[in-house]
Design a protein around this nucleic acid. Sequence first.
DNA 1: CGTGCCCTTGAGTACAATCAACGTTCGTGG
DNA 2: CCACGAACGTTGATTGTACTCAAGGGCACG
Lengths: 239, 239
Amino acid sequence: MIESHLKKLRARDSISQEEEAAIRDAIFEVREFPADVEVVHHGVDMSESLLLLQGWMARTKNMSSGQQQISELQFCGDFVDLHSFTLKRLDHNVMSLTACRLAVIPHENVRRLIDRFPHLGRVYWLMTNIDASIHREWTASLGRRSALERMAHLFCEIFVRLKVVGQTNGTSYDYPLTQLELAECLGLTPVHVNRTLQELRKRKLIEVGRGRVNIPDFQALTAAGEFDPEYLYLEKRPR
Amino acid sequence: MIESHLKKLRARDSISQEEEAAIRDAIFEVREFPADVEVVHHGVDMSESLLLLQGWMARTKNMSSGQQQISELQFCGDFVDLHSFTLKRLDHNVMSLTACRLAVIPHENVRRLIDRFPHLGRVYWLMTNIDASIHREWTASLGRRSALERMAHLFCEIFVRLKVVGQTNGTSYDYPLTQLELAECLGLTPVHVNRTLQELRKRKLIEVGRGRVNIPDFQALTAAGEFDPEYLYLEKRPR
DNA sequence: CGTGCCCTTGAGTACAATCAACGTTCGTGG
DNA sequence: CCACGAACGTTGATTGTACTCAAGGGCACG
């Protein structure tokens, strides 16, 4: 059930059998949500965190103009609101982009988990720091990259992050986003996303369609988006 | 020496005398840097963290185009690379914008500090989570706000963050940024920053000059930048 | 008193937004 | 099974915000 989560953690650090068992035990229950639902609302006091088991989610901010900005995508294995453990309430919403399955871990259990395994405490701290690193990379994208570069970069990031948790299939992956949602990630309008997508297709950098993305030449896409995975911290570090 | 840092922490949680003393003891030495120096280089293995005692710094990413993007500003009281404790190396650089004084805290000391005071461990986790929250707000700014809104928003953020650590003076604060550096925060060109700044001045929202910013009507600036400080987590939460 | 950095201004351009309409797909109910 | 509607994707024409290029001015510092 939490295999993807363990893969994600173990890509960065080693997790003992004991720790693994303790994580499993910390799960209080499993909840299902349909697509397009706001699962966590900003500003609300929280007493539990959610671990994404299946589906895609996004952190969103609603702007006064009525527009939305997505600040991070979440895939299976991601702890979507672990930071609420220290923040108590969130500054953004978390919504489901597809139907989702989520494991509920009460903050009390998180507390016990890291009291018992301080090492896990540091691993989870690391995870939230990696989220921050992803935010910084998006800041750089939005601030300094063109629409085409931004989009290429994002498709690379998604590929690498999904690969870590075993959700890719060769050079492709399931891809449920609408062009509007993609626009909300990239800070563009849906119309311009459509045109940029066509340009990426024309350059043979990507094949998108029917819920699936294929990247025929990852190196080329990487170059188009000046993508460097260093910000994802994929090396394993000694405990 | 670390008064600003304590103010920052105590704006969010209570810190005991014992904890305060332990933080002081964790400091290994103090270093001085001139302006415009890269103090922390991305990708380099780190064994210590730096606490900013005086001056302004910035997290920067160098883009292949030769441009730079700043993803966060750092003021006195900020732990500029606390996240290197778990990340081991950084995905970005940290540079001085002015002459700076920094306290050096070896990771080993951070480790001892949080082993001895698990509560402090959570407080520092919280601090890095607030950094992530600031990143998300910048993402929203860069993705969905106009140049004028972005700039107004940033001047509000700076004011509030400086106020927490007692670095404001009435409605104004010392402000050392060049227009190029401001452009690197906002994802704009220096030329457009110049024009946007003039527009803010024309609308009487801000007075900038000779190393100082004055905000005659904070409410108005807030409205212009749709600034809401919730993302800075300034309430005190029970331990 | 020059030199370099920063700020300012103007003219022309371009990337992405806006506005508007049409096409496609898919789920649903008659 | 087909008709309908809604959501999503596509296209064209036009506009506008911010970029580019270029030059000049102010000021501090050696």
